[in-house]
Simulated assay, not measured.
Amino acid sequence: MIAIRELHEIADLEEVLALFGAIWQFKPGGEPISVELMRAFAHAGNYVSGAYDGDKLVGASVGFRGGDSTLHSHVTGATTGRGIGFELKMHQRRWALDRGLERISWTYDPLVRRNAHFNLAKLGARPREYLPGFYGVMQDAINQGDEADRVLAVWDLSAPHVEAAARREPYRRELPPGTAVALADEGGRPAPGATDAETVLVAVPADIEGLRGLDPGTAKAWRHAVRDMLGGMLAEGRKVTGFHDKTYYIVEKA
């Protein structure tokens, strides 16, 4: 049984930082947050929580209040395979709703398929903005020098499809007739296609993290192709409405 609780004490926050370090293997000075900042966040009434399996910390999340009734989730990490990330997000959602907040936002790498599927299909969040090079060039073990493009995801906590997701009913957007593939995966490389349909699909690679180490050139090609295609469409005012077949962003004209 996983138990989630808010954290305030230095010893607990040191465990959180150690867990994040084990997940991302940051270089010294590259940590996304410090114990002192987590302590200040918690003391000021922001969100700092840990997920425990017995006495063992297996997940944690840190967020701060932003403008416009929003909680911004700065960093969340968990050991894999047990639904801990989902439980953390559900706890975060209840915490925000209890305080009168309407939405939670966070950033994620648009090239990581499992994160896109989790955020869009399992939680019902929606990409709102494409942020090229948001964190500069990252040097942790997972990102390996890649340009840190991010998508800003916004989770409208009381939307019907989000409430359904909280009941563990994943969101599945049916594709309308005439849907086109704007960016395909052909032999592991990005291949541009048609963009003029009302609904288009934008693929992301099967394993961008592996590509960064094995084929940096192809990883860079994917980064720029998705930046141009998905980022360009969001800048034009198109909306991402789902993630299809654990592979494609669904993008619709407004």
Rank of each mutant, 00 (worst) to 15 (best):
M1P: 12
I4P: 00
E6N: 13
E9L: 13
I10G: 15
D12H: 10
L13I: 07
E15W: 05
L17G: 03
A18I: 03
A18E: 08
F20N: 04
F20R: 05
A22T: 14
I23S: 04
K27S: 13
P28Y: 10
E31L: 09
P32R: 06
A42C: 10
G45E: 08
G45N: 05
Y47L: 06
V48T: 00
V48Q: 01
S49Q: 07
A51V: 01
A51G: 02
L57Q: 03
S61N: 13
G63S: 08
G63T: 03
D68T: 14
T70M: 11
H72W: 10
V75A: 05
G77P: 04
A78G: 10
T80G: 15
G83R: 07
G83K: 05
G83F: 01
I84E: 00
G85H: 03
F86M: 15
F86R: 13
F86G: 09
E87F: 11
L88W: 03
K89T: 05
H91T: 02
R93N: 04
L97K: 11
E102M: 15
R103I: 00
R103V: 02
S105Y: 06
T107K: 01
Y108F: 14
D109H: 08
P110M: 03
R113F: 12
R113I: 14
A116L: 07
N119K: 06
A121S: 15
A125H: 04
R126Y: 08
P127Y: 00
Y130Q: 08
P132C: 13
P132Y: 11
F134V: 07
Y135K: 09
Y135C: 09
G136A: 08
A141P: 06
D146F: 09
E147S: 11
A148M: 11
A148I: 10
D149G: 06
D149Q: 05
V151K: 01
A153C: 09
P160T: 10
V162F: 01
V162N: 04
E163F: 11
R167G: 12
E169A: 15
P170A: 06
R172T: 13
R172L: 14
R172P: 08
R173C: 15
E174N: 13
P176E: 05
P176D: 06
P176Y: 00
P177N: 11
G178N: 09
V181D: 02
L183A: 01
A184I: 07
G187Y: 06
P190L: 03
T195V: 13
E198H: 14
E198Y: 13
V200E: 01
A203S: 04
G210I: 11
G210A: 12
G210M: 10
L211C: 07
G217Q: 15
G217R: 15
A219Q: 03
H224I: 15
H224V: 15
A225L: 08
A225M: 05
A225K: 02
R227G: 03
R227L: 07
M229H: 10
L230G: 00
L230E: 03
G237D: 07
G237R: 08
G242T: 01
D245T: 10
K246G: 15
T247V: 11
A254K: 14
